[in-house]
Write a protein that binds this DNA or RNA. Structure first.
Lengths: 244, 244
DNA sequence: CAGTATCCATTTCGATACTG
DNA sequence: CAGTATCGAAATGGATACTG
C-alpha cells in the first residue's frame, strides 16, 4: 500500500491523516454547527457528493469523532459529536479564522449563490424578526449560471431555505451582484452602504426594508482582521501597470 | 476541472483547500520548528519523496506561507516563514495536541525507528550535557527491518544524526524494543522505570548512564492528557475474546 | 429521504533517472 | 546537496443507478 497514511506515530501526522482529506473538516464543522441529518450536512458542505459524504461520515464515526443514531420513526440517522469531535471545535474555528485573514479572494466561478443562501439561512437573527412568517427572496446576478433565486422562510424562530418558489407570498425581495453580496456577507463591504447606494436593492414594505440589515447577521468571521499581502501588492502592480 | 478546490468563498474551505493536502501540515511544522534546508525538512517529514516536498514547498511559497531565499555560497535555498505561516504555529500546535490526546496507538509497521531518532535529535537537552563531544548509539529491535542503529553526536550545543557509524568512539549505547521506546518517548511509559527494569538498556560510563534520562527531553507533547476511548474498549473486547 | 454499489475519469504520488 | 522531469501505479471522487 504505497501512499496510504503517513506511517508515523507523530501526533501531528496522526491528526492530519484522519482530518486532512477533502471536505472532512467541512463535514465536522457542519456537525459542530448542529446539523444532524444527512441532507442537512450535505447542503452545508459545498460540492460534496452523497457518495463522498457517506464515506466521510463512516470514517469519522469509526475514528470516534461523530456518533450516528438510527432514527425510530423515520428512515435515516441523526449525527452528533463525541468528545473527541467536540474537542476540534476551537481548532476548526481558528483554522477558519486563519482562512478569513489570509486567503485570497476567489474567482467569480467560486462564488456559489446556493452556498451563500445556505450560509445566510444559518445566520438569520430570528430574535429580531416578527413572530409572523417572513418570506425573503434573494436574486443574485453575475454568477456563472446567470440569475439565481432562493427563498428563506422564517417562522417561529426556525428558518428554511427553498430553491423553488415556496408558495407563500414574498415579503422582501433582495437583489444584487453575487460578488458584492458575498463581500458584504464576509464583512469586506458595508451592507448598509451597498443598500443605500443602490448596489444591493431591497423591495417590500418600509418597516421590513428598514429592519433587514438587522436580520442578516452576516458571516461569523466578519470581525477578523484581513491581511492578504499579495493582493495589495497585486493591486499596486496593476495600478502601476495602468498608470505607467 | 472536476474536483480541484472546493469552489467556495467559505473561509474554512479556503484554509482547508491550501493546507489539507498530504504532508502539507508536516512540512509547515518543520519550517516552524526552524528547519531551513531542503534535506533537513525532508528528513523531518516521514515518508515524503523529494518530488512531493519540492512541489509542496513551491505551492506554500506561492500561497504566501513560506519564503525561499537562494543561498549565496552554496547551492540550494533557505526556507523560512511569512507572517501568514507564522500565524499557523498555534493552530498546528493545537492540531498536534489533539492528535496526542485522541489518536489510537499505531501498529508496529508504523513505528519508524529512523523518525524516532530524528525526533530525538531535535529534543536533546544540550545545556545539561558535557562540553565535550558525546556520541550515543541507539539500537532499536522489533521493527519491520529487524535491528535499526542510529548515532546522535552532540557537541558545542549542536546535535547531528547519523545513519551510519560516524567514526567517533561511542560513549553510550541505548538498546530497546521500538514500541516501548516510542511509548516512552511519547510519555506513555516512564523512561526511568523502563531503564531500571532492564527493558531499555544503557551501556557506558556510570556518570553518562545516570545522566542520560536528563539529556532526553522526550516529545514536547508528553504532558497532554490522553483520552482514547476505543482502545480501552478494544482491550476489553480482546480480553473477553481470550478468556471467553 | 437516506443512503449504497459500481464504474470510470481524474489526480496524486513514488521511483527512477537526471542536472549543476 | 538540492532539486527537476518523466512515467506508471494507486487512490480519489463524481455520476449514475439502485434500494427501502
Amino acid at each position: 500500500m504505497p501512499y496510504k497514511g503517513y506511517g508515523q506515530y507523530c501526533p501531528l501526522a496522526l491528526a492530519a491523516e484522519g482530518l486532512c482529506e477533502r471536505s472532512t473538516l467541512l463535514v465536522i464543522s457542519r456537525v459542530i454547527d448542529g446539523c444532524t441529518r444527512f441532507n442537512e450536512i450535505n447542503r452545508g458542505v459545498p460540492k460534496i457528493s452523497a457518495t463522498l459524504l457517506s464515506q466521510r461520515l463512516s470514517r469519522l464515526e469509526h475514528a470516534g469523532l461523530i456518533t450516528r443514531l438510527p432514527l425510530e420513526n423515520e428512515r435515516g440517522s441523526a449525527y452528533g459529536l463525541t468528545d473527541a469531535g467536540r474537542d476540534l471545535d476551537p481548532i476548526i474555528m481558528s483554522f477558519a479564522a486563519w482562512g478569513q485573514k489570509w486567503s485570497r479572494n476567489r474567482e467569480t466561478e467560486d462564488l456559489d449563490p446556493a452556498f451563500l443562501a445556505w450560509s445566510m439561512h444559518t445566520r438569520l437573527n430570528v430574535d429580531a424578526m416578527p413572530e409572523t412568517r417572513v418570506v425573503m427572496e434573494f436574486a443574485f446576478t453575475g454568477s456563472q449560471k446567470g440569475l439565481s433565486r432562493f427563498w428563506l422562510v422564517a417562522q417561529n424562530g426556525h428558518v428554511g431555505m427553498c430553491l423553488k418558489y415556496p408558495g407563500y407570498d414574498t415579503d422582501l425581495t433582495i437583489s444584487g451582484d453575487i460578488r458584492r453580496s458575498v463581500e458584504a456577507w464576509r464583512g469586506f463591504r458595508d451592507l448598509r452602504r451597498e443598500i443605500a447606494d443602490g448596489r444591493i436593492t431591497v423591495e417590500g414594505p418600509e418597516p421590513y426594508r428598514r429592519a433587514l440589515p438587522d436580520w442578516l447577521l452576516l458571516s461569523a468571521l466578519t470581525g477578523i482582521e484581513r491581511r492578504v499581502g499579495d493582493e495589495s501588492r497585486d493591486a499596486r502592480a496593476a495600478s502601476l501597470a495602468r498608470t505607467g
